[in-house]
Simulated assay, not measured.
Amino acid sequence: MRKISIVGAGPGALDLITQRALNRIEEAEVLVWTDSLIPPRLLELSQNNCERIPSGSLTLEEILRILIKKAKSGKKVVRLHDGDPCLFGALTEQINLIKQAEIDVEVIPGISAYQATAAALQAELTIPGITQTIILSRASGRTGTPEREKLEKLACLRSSLCLYLSARHVEEVEETLLKYYPHDTPVAIGYRVSWEDEWLTVVPLKQMAAKSKEKGLIRTTIYIISPAFNTKDKRSKLYDKSHNHLFRLN
């Protein structure tokens, strides 16, 4: 059966990929990888004779032509995405074109940067009584966002807001967020989280842009703006001895 596997490589660390992703990488005969966003050491998980094709300088159409040609030749083909391919990964376009070529496709999820960042900080992003909502979005930039999803409308919820692909617009982002979040709201800034050269810090919202500019951040950066970072000793009712639920009826 001709099939292309679109695989989430996770945030970068070798041991932060799923077992299913590892299996596909190890089985791959052709691996097309996003070299600008995935550490080269991840390629070491593939076979020595695997054909490894970097895609950083290719257009989407060029990438798809390679994937389809290799799959039609009978090769086991893997398209390796950074993080999770379901987030900002042009996944829909790829699947549509692959299916038009009458080739099966599977999608294997990966751990995303927001999860790796929260874990590295040992932080929960959903604290009872503080926020129970996580928003994953981005600054508008050249791609733009729907009017109903403008940053102003997301920020007014004052929930845990995770922004990808936004470092180039950080000054504008900070200005907008300060209209809704208190100026001392903690902001986690993560650069290449889980890579060997990871840089991660937490600053007040009012220092978000300045710290980003100081570090020269323009890509591979995530921002998590969250009132949840400010909480201590806040307990969930789920584990309170007075709270009954399906598995604790008495």
Rank of each mutant, 00 (worst) to 15 (best):
P227W: 09
G56Q: 15
V32Q: 04
S57A: 14
Y181F: 15
W33Y: 15
E27R: 11
V107I: 15
I189K: 02
K72C: 02
E26S: 14
R65K: 15
L37Y: 08
K99C: 02
S160P: 09
G216S: 11
I130W: 06
L200Y: 11
Q100F: 05
V187T: 08
E124I: 00
K211W: 02
K215Q: 15
Q19E: 11
S36H: 09
V77W: 03
S5Q: 04
L200N: 07
E147Y: 13
K99D: 02
L161V: 09
L161T: 10
A209F: 11
E175A: 14
N96V: 11
A28E: 00
G74E: 08
G89A: 00
S137I: 01
Q94C: 04
S140D: 15
E198K: 10
H245W: 15
K237T: 08
L80R: 09
I224T: 07
K215E: 13
A13Q: 09
N250H: 12
V7I: 15
P186I: 05
I130A: 04
D84A: 06
P109D: 11
E198P: 07
M1Q: 07
A167S: 14
R20F: 01
K76H: 13
D82V: 03
Y181Q: 01
V32W: 06
V203I: 05
Q100W: 02
G74Q: 07
T126D: 07
A118T: 04
W195F: 12
A9C: 04
L58D: 06
R158V: 13
K237D: 14
I108H: 08
A167V: 10
L42V: 10
T221C: 12
T145M: 14
Q122H: 15
V78R: 09
T117C: 06
E174W: 10
T220D: 13
H245A: 01
I134L: 14
G141A: 11
D35Y: 02
I127C: 07
I6R: 05
L163M: 08
E62T: 04
R142N: 12
A167P: 11
I17W: 01
E198A: 06
K76Q: 06
E29M: 01
K75F: 07
F229R: 10
K237A: 13
E29H: 02
W195G: 01
F229W: 14
P40G: 03
F229M: 12
L58W: 09
R158E: 15
T59N: 05
R192E: 13
L45C: 03
P182L: 07
I6L: 15
L58M: 15
P54Y: 09
A13P: 07
K213N: 14
L178N: 05
P85K: 03
S166Y: 02
L64G: 01
S166H: 01
I68V: 14
P186D: 08
P85N: 05
V30D: 05
Q94F: 06
I218A: 12
L67N: 00
L14W: 05
S73T: 08
S159G: 03
A21F: 01
M1Y: 03
E198M: 15
Q122D: 15
R41C: 12
P182N: 04
I222F: 06
